[in-house]
Write a protein that binds this DNA or RNA. Structure first.
Lengths: 134, 134
DNA sequence: GTATATGCAAACAATTTGCACGCCT
DNA sequence: AGGCGTGCAAATTGTTTGCATATAC
């Protein structure tokens, strides 16, 4: 399909590129409205789908919601159990060795795997320290 | 809260224990209806939530749907890209070494991580072989 | 000019919830 | 008897879609 460059799509992509909070469609919608007040949520969803199809962004599922990420290079995610924020993790920050040959022998062709980390982020950790001090 | 043993909850749990397909709430609902024809979907959801809170089952999210698993011991999941079935993977079938100390140094307390495998399952692999032969 | 994109609202799918009644304990 | 659980239906949430109009190319 022949794609057009619309201001809606451009602004949606710019906003997503400018943040690292891995926002939901609704978060993006509210931001875009500051530039295009009468944009519709449907347009946001449609453009996120297009940007994903074209490989500009990634969709990461968070329970029943979707979040979006303009970082498409190799990296991982850490989700805080307390504040629910999602943080980017550099591949260099973890040391991972994984051997799936035993799975392959059993007939499963492993094409990819996703690892997601959960725990307590730096910010929430610090806030807990403060509480302890009191 | 003081919980009661209802036939609905018992049958839902029994059905979930008897399968390894990691079913959705709707799949379970259809099965339970064979035993309790006028059970409501809401009751299925409510009991799945209770069973999860009590630690009898796990909820695994699959895009915008939830799937449920009566296996609560340590194991992993493999999702087939072709048939979308979810398979149990034994921890002994993968060799994993993971060092997150660098993350901890940066202030993230890693409590757990999820690994999910994607690819083509044994059954779909076999079907492809057959096609190649033709 | 023409096909793609938009805004709007309605439709959808998965899940949750309010309510009156039912049935464990 | 008292309160948790149920069935039913309506409500909610996140997302998609049909349609008439607008706009990029």
């Amino acid at each position: 399909m022949q794609r057009r460059n619309t201001s809606q799509r451009k602004i949606i992509y710019d906003i997503l590129k400018s943040t690292d909070v891995h926002p939901t469609a609704d978060w993006i919608y509210e931001k875009v409205r500051k530039y295009i007040p009468n944009i519709s949520l449907g347009t946001v969803y449609r453009n996120l789908k297009v940007l994903k199809e074209e490989g500009y962004i990634l969709e990461i599922s968070d329970g029943k919601q979707s979040r979006f990420d303009a970082r498409t290079d190799d990296h991982l995610h850490f989700k805080c159990d307390l504040c629910n924020n999602v943080y980017d993790i550099e591949p260099s920050d973890i040391n991972l060795q994984l051997d799936t040959s035993s799975l392959e022998k059993k007939g499963f062709k492993v094409c990819r795997y996703d690892i997601e980390f959960y725990g307590i982020c730096r910010k929430c950790n610090k806030e807990r320290e403060v509480e302890k001090d009191n």
